[in-house]
């Protein structure tokens, strides 16, 4: 599984949506399943799958697919 597939698999599994619905615009504002609990799960799963450790102060950021991708790119992970 390449990084892009892995990323889509995480988002689709945690937010319980089909992969084709994952767009850069998708955010905690646009979908109900992206609540505070699933945000923690999403960040936790991304950390586990890509081997990252984010600062506590940044955990509440990245509330959209666009922001998550940018964060991963900063860590050298292209999805």
């Amino acid at each position: 599984m390449d990084n892009g597939q892995k990323f889509r698999s995480i988002v689709s599994t945690i937010l319980q949506i089909p992969e084709h619905e994952i767009t850069d615009d998708l955010s905690s504002e646009t979908i109900d399943t992206w609540d505070s609990l699933n945000h923690i799960n999403l960040i936790g799963a991304i950390e586990q799958e890509f081997g990252l450790t984010l600062d506590a102060s940044t955990l509440s950021q990245f509330q959209s697919i666009f922001k998550l991708k940018a964060m991963l790119a900063e860590h050298g992970v292209s999805v």
Binding site: S9, I10, T13, I14, N41, G44, A45, Q48, E49
Partner: peptide, 10 residues
């Protein structure tokens, strides 16, 4: 991992 737990549950 969280992903594996969700994946297997599904």
């Amino acid at each position: 991992t969280l992903l594996n737990i969700s994946r297997v549950t599904k």
